[in-house]
Design a protein around this nucleic acid. Sequence first.
RNA 1: GGGCGCAUAGCUCAGUUGGUUCAGAGCAUCUGCCUUACAAGCAGAGGGUCGGAGGUUCGAAUCCUUCUGCGCCCA
Length: 919
Amino acid sequence: MSLSTRYNPKETESRWYEYWEKKNYFHSEPDDREPFTIVIPPPNVTGVLHMGHMLNNTIQDVLIRRARMQGKNACWVPGTDHASIATEAKVVQLLRKKGIKKGDIGREEFLNHAWEWKEKYGGIILDQLKKLGASCDWERTRFTMDPSMSRAVVHVFVDLYKKGKLYRGLRMTNWDPEAKTVLSNEEVIYKEENSQLFHIRYPFEDNPTEGIIIATQRPETIMADVAIAVHPEEEKYKHLIGKNVLIPLINKPIPIIADSYVDREFGTGALKITPAHDQNDNEIGQRHNLPVVDILTEDGKLNEHAQILVGEDRFVARKKIKKLLEDSGTLVKLEDYRTSIGHSERTDAIVEPRLTNQWFLDMKDFAKTALHAVESKEVKFYPENMWNMFYQWLQEDNVRDWCISRQLWWGQRIPAWYVKTADGGRWMADGEEAVFVAENVEAALAQARQKTGNTGLTLNDLEQDEDVVDTWFSSWLWPISVFDGFENQEELKYYYPTSVLVTGWDIMFFWVARMIMSGYEWSEELLGKELAEKKGRMPFHDVYFTGMVRDNKRRKMSKSLGNSPEALELIENYGADGVRFGMLLAGSAGNDIIFDAPFDPETKQALNESKLCEQGRNFCNKMWNALRLVKGWPVSDAPQSKINQLAVSWLEHKFNQTLAGLENNFNQYRLSDVLMSLYQFIWDDFCSWYLEMIKPAYNAEGNSEPLDRATFEATVALFEKMMAALHPFMPFVTEEIWHQLRQRAEGQDCIVSRYPAPGAFDGNMIKLVDKAKDVITEIRNTRNGKGISPKEPLKLFVQNTDSAKAMYQLDGLTEMVGKMANLTSVELTGSEPEGTVAFISGTEKYFLELNIQIDVEAERERLTKELDYNRGFVTSVEKKLSNERFVSGAPAQVVENERKKLADGLEKIRILKEALAKL
RNA sequence: GGGCGCAUAGCUCAGUUGGUUCAGAGCAUCUGCCUUACAAGCAGAGGGUCGGAGGUUCGAAUCCUUCUGCGCCCA
């Protein structure tokens, strides 16, 4: 035989992937079939494949491959996200290494560098997905900054502006001083940290020896203070309201004001008000018409308004000011303090609240739309309880307007123009900078001419907004824009709404909610009312939320922690099929996944090992060896034996039973359950039982006797059906075995074969064989316990009862038990044969002739133990049945079952007593 | 501070409508086997008061209350 004793994934996987691509199996064009569409959550173009990607793309591939095998037009659109902050940071870093500063080279040249970088490295993660076996339609690969996608962003921006949902305004925003850009609330990560609370005395203007003490975490911002606030009801301070105090170090007078926002219990009960550098202070400042003094630069340094420490970084300034306050005697107390501090998701810099001019999207109506979509189940969540989180987030009080502008260059530039004035400023209207939002500069110019009344304006008089839009402002259009839906609705009409979105719950708000919003906002306009009503406005019907992949300490796996195995190394070690198996079995929908990669005790880094992936690899090998066995048998035209008839028919019934269970699990996205039941069917039922049942004997020359043709054909047919059923999960090994099983004609490939549909099955027949399996196990167990080799043939007697007769009436069952347990004979008997050991299986009594001296005491002990167990069991059932309320209250079926249990138990007790008496 | 979720075998997890031997799976452990498909294997075994307490019910891992421990989201 030419097949290697071990399955070799390396060679197989690359070969089949190339073949599938060559045959164009992944490609989809609209046709008459029902579409099944998935759009990939586009990974960052800067990214490399990590465990989260592996999990979520394996799941998508399972769903897509199954749909394809069900005869649907499966379309999985891949692509990448331009990830503006992350990518820009990366390119800035790269240029810095070359000694180039972003500010020196200007926007255009910087973007050239960025594109160059994208062209060079941007495809890496997609190539890695191919290694995993992802059957994406690569011809459809998209990038969120593709020209048509960028045009969609501009179109949508202008549309929303016209609808009055977009506005520009000066707002308190989260500022990242490192990236020098504003962040949305979702991009701020709060971390518990140690901090200090500074108690500082502000002297009274009219009596500098006395003063009021405030507590603050940010002493470096005192120069920006504009007031001290106290609670209006606070006795301690009531009389001070209206007095002026002096800011220490700069001696600037500020008033003491009253505001009920102040928490009387916190710190000293007096609060310094710094409207430029704190969200809450800003609101108080607005209530009291206080001025705003901004003392920080865009990169977090003190500016000239601070008067002192100008040019110092905010944290250096904090240290220095501590010293200055101590020296001046105004620092009265330092207190250790735990607080949560916001960090930038991308740069990890501590976020600075800052007043800036930004673009906002009004979210009120959008939030309602998204809530309604999920509430009405037009979009279904799996697992369902994710709805709770979604609901919570979209409550009116929680929804803030979406700040969509970013002070970056890499991304879609905001389509808004201003009119330059001679003095270098911008033309104002109604006290604000006049802004002209349009799809292009010419249209903006026309608007500007009309508004200013100056028909002589030229393109040179306009300047475009410097900012780009938030990355999510392009990815929220993804389900529409990957089909170029804003420009040409041909494909959109076929593929939209997509079938299912598979993504982690961590971007539920960033992305999932916003896609739902954009879907409902534009699909009707694009599809036409009739079609939108027929097919739905939602961007996807189902959302399958995957959990986060965590290490055994429950930390999210990340590159920086070093707690994640290398995805590609895992594939190298276990094969893509093995890794897919491991990922899928690790957890179920929504629950976080604890991935079992062990750690190197020395380096504390995760090793590229995994027990679950190993199990997957072993499974491949198991199936491979089953193939070798089947292919190795000579085939004859002899008639089919009774055993083989029984075996084939049993396996067919059992397979149908398994398939029937699969359907429901698939529909609920319980993929790990589906995989597990296939695993158990193939390993246990097919390999351990079926193949052993039909395995031909060896002749004197040590060669296998032939297998009859009917059984051989049935085996091959079942084997290939199993491979088809497993294909979505483990595509490579199944395709390989599929082709090894038979000569295949052109186009007969597992990937495009029909997914096996469940047929009828005889549950009673399956039960009888299960009973026989139990008998066989009992015999093997007896051999094990008494040290009798499996090779030594034994004689078995069955007590002749009605139930035993009914069982062994099944054609081939007697022979099957004899073969599997290595028995010379299986006989029904009326009396107990001498010198045998008795055991019970089901309600049948068996006697096994062992040809050895029987240890009577050991037998007595064993039987007594079993008797005790059964007595206890019967007692509990009797108790239940003697309860009048149970008998009258429980459904008849349940009571009937209890009666049966009782009868069986009593029968067992009778048999055991009899056996004990005979000893 | 507000909210959501979790706790089942040594580990990672299933357990769908409260009801069949429902207390399960895989891994790990132990015993015996290099039996001509597979030692990446075969045949077996042990192991859990379902986090604690209380309640509803004829019946609770499952529903309710409460406590403890842990995780996450929002502020």
